[in-house]
Design a binder for these strands. Structure first.
Lengths: 213, 213
DNA sequence: ACTAGTATGTGAAAATTATAACATACTGAA
DNA sequence: TTCAGTATGTTATAATTTTCACATACTAGT
């Protein structure tokens, strides 16, 4: 049963989408079976780690055979929630909000953007990628009338905490935060930060530290 | 001396930008000194971890006093390379490329976007955020004539590997990859992946797994 | 059916990472 | 100048994460 109450570590969870991607590619290539060793060579990790990771959720393989690609992909999809849809709204239709609204990959992975909110009058009533742009004043009403699972925060830095708090109070289940700050909210809400600049700085560090060697 | 040859773990490195942010905010607030305990409360980590992390790079604090905020910020900046500039080019002026070209935070953190490349004729010769848009045919020439430290890859999925390879061959030092794939290159180049969809899927997982409890 | 080969699931070991504990050294008030 | 308080740097311990190793069980060719 996949409903074991042993806690899955975040390290494992963060690797799951990577398995998802590789298995998807294998499926596309028509590969029907794969061993942990073969997959480990493709992914550049140890076979042992793959077996350990998968076993957190169940025994999906078979001794002497390996893993059925389609089956394993289905299982990983289920674990990641791709067997159902998430309703998502975007708050802030700036450059980043616009980019996210047009990113087709989200839909493929189970996330439907059902609304966009901003305050600029000239945007209200328009559509982006077939998604209606509404005024922030309509936010509360919209969230009350629609199941909104996730709010994407792509608003200016200064406005982020207040809007995050507002979404938390409205009962949205998760926030995907693009502002370079760590949100701390007094609500029962999951937060995933993107922190693009942080990632770029890490790249800068890697480059510099290699130079020094 | 900061040139110790003991290896700094990636776990520590990934926390550095976070320290950078908090120290920057403290500076803005006029705070001149802070102890690891105070900082730990703000950041939601243990004071011990902060002291351990900082000590990888040197003893920046003073017993009985704590850390001088300005000094510590300067040191972290130096470690992260903000004491010099990185030259960056964007490959692919789609929605994401456009958003990144307009993101002002990068400049603040030491990254200058010095060129944008695409293949769409109507874009070539225009400027975005005062950055010239050039044709991909001009890429090799440009990289040879300018120091390019980092290439941002915001091109369609299928084109990513070939362009990454091209930048690797041209001697670019780092790639910041926005395509949902892991790049593996036979060159001496640092790669930092963003993998937005992966991050969103992790958020989805967190939401689901909380529901089940 | 038999058997050599293969590959999982898992318990144990190793490595890494985080936390705790504390000796040392500075601060700042009297 | 003294001394109680504070907070670092660092060593030791704990926790977590990764890797190893192997018994078990299936595959597939003869």
């Amino acid at each position: 049963m996949s409903n074991d109450n042993k806690k899955i570590s975040l390290a494992v969870v963060r690797r799951l989408p990577r398995y998802y991607r590789y298995l998807y590619d294998l499926l596309q290539s028509g590969v029907t079976r794969i061993s942990s060793r073969e997959l480990s060579e493709k992914m550049g990790v140890t076979a042992s780690q793959i077996r350990q990771d998968l076993n957190c959720f169940g025994g999906f393989g078979q001794q002497g055979y390996g893993y059925n690609v389609q089956n394993l992909f289905n299982e990983i999809s289920k674990i990641l929630g791709t067997d159902h849809r998430f309703n998502v709204i975007i708050i802030g239709l700036g450059n980043m909000g616009h980019a996210l609204a047009n990113y087709e990959n989200f839909k493929k992975r189970g996330f439907d953007i059902i609304g966009i909110f901003d305050i600029k009058p000239e945007l209200i009533g328009t559509t982006v990628n077939n998604i209606k742009v509404m005024h922030m004043d309509e936010l509360d009403e919209f969230v009350k009338n629609n199941r909104v699972d996730i709010g994407i925060l792509s608003v200016p830095y200064g406005q982020t905490p207040a809007i995050a708090d507002r979404l938390g109070r409205l009962g949205v289940k998760g926030l995907w935060n693009f502002s370079p700050m760590d949100l701390k909210l007094p609500y029962d809400i999951e937060i995933e930060n993107v922190h693009l600049s942080d990632s770029l700085m890490v790249l800068g560090y890697k480059i510099d530290s290699k130079m020094k060697k």
